[in-house]
């Protein structure tokens, strides 16, 4: 589904200040797979996601989606950002409908689909609210609904729950898994929370920083559908978290602070 082939990214802040954010990253993601990219801050994990999204061009290498090279953003890859990036001048409903109307879906149909999605993220009662009137968790649920609305095959999630408090965060993780279980889209999920990565993913890709490269890939062999309450008691879940966290600590220590 997604093939990342030898992707490198260098940022030239000035002639003498070059920063190699990603160095020769190769990864393939199967259709319907939930893959988390985990790493210390500054390891280029978000940059990698932006390159798959077509928002940022790689310095070297390429990304193929369904065997077609990525040349720019497209509605087959739907982003969800940590900053929510909702259109503040649109209501909740207007935000969710935006992509559908852009894609030429008739208004009545767009309205029906948007309302259905808002019900799914439990925000039906808020369709006429503006983003500034919502809490962080609600904003992110709107953003997820807005992206799901235009039916991307791939979800690109850039630390989507990073700006939320712990309680809201676990709530949204459950919501996301619940939604994902319905149609099993391919998901690339960037996070710096080990527990979050293990809870959600089929595979966890651990990156090291400066320059960012893949350090190790963990297969998370836990049954689905997953429930947080059960997994927390599950020995295998605990082992994954401890093992990955240990490696994460080693990686972070090697990185320049």
């Amino acid at each position: 589904m997604i093939a990342i082939e030898g992707v490198s990214k260098r940022f030239d802040a000035a002639r003498d200040r070059r920063h190699l954010a990603l160095n020769d990253v190769t990864l393939s993601v199967a259709e319907g797979e939930f893959v988390s990219i985990l790493g210390p801050s500054g390891c280029g994990k978000s940059t990698l996601l932006y390159i798959v999204g077509g928002f940022v061009e790689p310095t070297a290498g390429r990304v193929l989606v369904k065997d077609v090279p990525v040349r720019g953003p497209g509605p087959d890859r739907g982003p969800v950002f940590q900053e929510f990036a909702l259109f503040p001048w649109k209501t909740v409903l207007g935000n969710v409908m935006y992509g559908l109307q852009q894609g030429g879906v008739p208004r009545a149909e767009a309205l029906a689909r948007s309302r259905e999605l808002l019900t799914m993220v439990r925000l039906s009662a808020y369709e006429n609210f503006y983003p500034k009137e919502l809490s962080g968790g609600m904003k992110q649920r709107v953003a997820i609904a807005r992206t799901l609305a235009y039916r991307p095959n791939i979800l690109l999630m850039d630390e989507p729950f990073g700006a939320l408090d712990a309680h809201t965060r676990t709530g949204l993780q459950n919501d996301l898994l619940h939604i994902w279980d319905k149609d099993r889209k391919t998901v690339l999920f960037v996070t710096h929370s080990v527990e979050e990565a293990v809870f959600l993913s089929d595979r966890v890709v651990m990156m090291s920083s400066a320059p960012g490269r893949i350090k190790q890939i963990f297969d998370i062999d836990l049954p689905r559908p997953r429930s947080r309450a059960e997994l927390l008691l599950d020995r295998r879940f605990q082992d994954y978290v401890v093992e990955i966290e240990k490696m994460f600590d080693d990686t972070a220590q090697q990185a320049p602070a």
Partner: peptide, 13 residues
């Protein structure tokens, strides 16, 4: 915000 523009371009604008 750059990500507003990215969100829009992902929708095909």
């Amino acid at each position: 915000e750059e990500k507003l523009l990215w969100s829009a371009s992902a929708m095909g604008l």
